[in-house]
Simulated assay, not measured.
Amino acid sequence: MHSHIAEAIKQPDLIRVRPDLFCLRFESMKVYSALGAVRHLLDSGAVQEGDTLIDSSSGIYAHALALACHRFGLRCHIVGSATVDRTLRVQLEILGATLEQVEPSKNLRLDQELRVRRVSEILAGNPSYHWMRQYHDGIHYYGYREVAEILDREIPAGAVTLVGGVGSGASTGALATYLAEAGRDACVVGVQPFGSVTFGSEHVPDPDMIIAGIGSAIEFRNVRHELYDRIHWVNFACALSGSVELLRSTGIFAGLSAGAAYLTTLWERRGRGFRTYVFIAADTGHRYVEDAYAQHRDAWDIEFLRPHEIASLDELKPPWSAASWRDIPPRTHRG
């Protein structure tokens, strides 16, 4: 029995898609991150009951932080992207969190810069607020130790390849770290949108991509680049196609990042030696219905999709590129 809804929501479902392929499916993955971070802040005395926590979010983290604050008796203020929809806005309001959204922008960099700038302005006027810094503070890794323990216990023994959106780095980075601590041979494949600075694709725009949560237009100091073995850059059309096929073939209704991770995982496991593959579905597909799933008739057949393997970031091109990250010349690293 759970003492709070946040404890229930955070629990992932581990779904066997194929004998060697699993989906780690969350209702809202960042609840783990937020609960772990807030619990650490309270235990360390950095914040106290009744304090206000503030951060920016494109959607998932806003809900997660609001639930964590509700769970521990804290106030919550979110500077949100225009992608925060009405369903989430209403929930935040009822949970007692306050939300302000920046102006809509097709440009990921502008959206994130506006949000961070606004957070700085609010902090200047309210110095007692605690900035969660989900993109920079290592405390967001802590909550995922429990997820790694679940994976280590539930999936077959032996080597594992973890595939997921990079975003702030906390989910894939933390899971890789804790799996390695458990003695697993863990390979990590990160998924990025074009236009993200984290792994150097900022010079290749993708105006249709709406999964800002897995990319970065500003530096994210939470990302530990050395943890990633392979990187795949996926555009909107490929992510949509992966999401539609994931729903069609498995019944899993998840966000665009899950579709991109599924597409990437199917490619990575071709011709490889025996390993277990786990891809992350960070959220459900509900908020992507109008802007993505409604276009399902335009989705490509993923059987005919192939990534463009690159040896330098100058070779990046849509719709899908891939690289062994450690083989990319350091002088071309832009992250």
Rank of each mutant, 00 (worst) to 15 (best):
A212W: 15
I5Q: 11
E219S: 14
E146D: 14
E49Y: 12
D51T: 10
T172L: 11
W131Q: 07
F199N: 04
L74T: 05
V223E: 06
E27C: 15
P307Y: 00
R306P: 08
S120N: 15
L313H: 02
I9P: 09
H286C: 14
V197M: 09
I328F: 10
Y135K: 09
A260H: 03
I211R: 03
I214Y: 04
Q134I: 09
G164S: 04
G36D: 05
T177A: 12
L162N: 06
E103S: 15
S128K: 07
F304H: 15
A174V: 04
Q11F: 11
R115Y: 04
E113P: 00
S196T: 11
R109K: 13
P329Q: 08
G169M: 00
P12F: 08
A212L: 12
L123V: 03
A148C: 08
E146M: 12
G242E: 03
V223P: 11
P205Q: 04
E103L: 15
V84R: 06
I280F: 09
V47F: 11
E226T: 08
V166A: 00
E268N: 15
V234I: 07
E181S: 01
W233I: 05
P104S: 07
F26P: 14
Q192P: 11
R118Y: 04
H203D: 13
L21V: 01
Q134A: 06
A260Q: 03
V90Q: 15
G167Q: 03
L151F: 01
S243T: 10
A217E: 15
L92K: 05
A239F: 02
V188R: 02
F22D: 06
L305P: 02
G125M: 02
A322W: 09
I280R: 01
R115H: 11
D327K: 00
R297H: 08
S120W: 13
R25T: 11
F220T: 14
R145W: 03
V147R: 03
E100L: 13
R297L: 09
D55V: 13
H225L: 08
S321A: 05
G125N: 12
R334Y: 13
L67M: 12
L316F: 05
V189Q: 02
W325K: 00
I15W: 03
I15C: 08
V191S: 08
H63M: 13
